[in-house]
């Protein structure tokens, strides 16, 4: 392992993480809800009447974040090098997997670990391990 110190951004990542922590805290303290993006998307998609407007508004906030950011500063770099067939496979796996697993990086990784949920700790270990293994396989074994 070699650490990429040039691209290491400890302060902005820590600060961004703190903002995410603030957002999930606000959502639970004010709305009584867990800010898990896959769960919110899934329930808004099914027109689940319970809290649909609050969930949709949270997602709207996410959607307009880059527009608000763009009013004050240039957007940070966004690089996507994945080809379209791989993007489709990735999207299908992320969509189905997060719904079967009842959560994603936000619901399990941030909210679940913060409330020390054993399910979320196991889920986070599973998706992190699978993520590390997949990148290892594609980059260092298959050489894509």
């Amino acid at each position: 392992m070699s650490i990429d110190w040039v691209n290491f951004t400890p302060w902005s990542s820590l600060g961004g993480g703190a903002l995410i922590g603030l957002a999930v805290s606000l959502f639970v303290l004010a709305n009584g809800r867990i800010a898990g993006i896959s769960g919110l998307l899934g329930s808004v998609m099914q027109f689940d009447s319970e809290g649909c407007s609050e969930k949709a508004l949270f997602l709207l906030g996410l959607l307009i974040a880059p527009l608000c950011w763009g009013m004050f500063a240039a957007l940070p770099e966004i690089e996507i090098e994945t080809e379209w067939p791989a993007l489709i496979i990735a999207g299908l796996l992320v969509g189905a997997g997060t719904r079967y697993g009842s959560g994603c990086t936000s619901g399990h990784g941030v909210c679940g670990i913060s409330r020390l949920s054993p399910r979320s700790i196991v889920a986070t270990v599973c998706f992190m391990t699978a993520g590390f293994a997949t990148v290892y396989a594609t980059r260092h074994v298959l050489g894509i």
Binding site: V94, G97, T98, Y100, G101, V122, A130, G131, A133
Partner: peptide
């Protein structure tokens, strides 16, 4: 589900 998500 979490393993599938991680692969994606």
């Amino acid at each position: 589900g979490s393993l599938v998500f991680g692969v994606g």
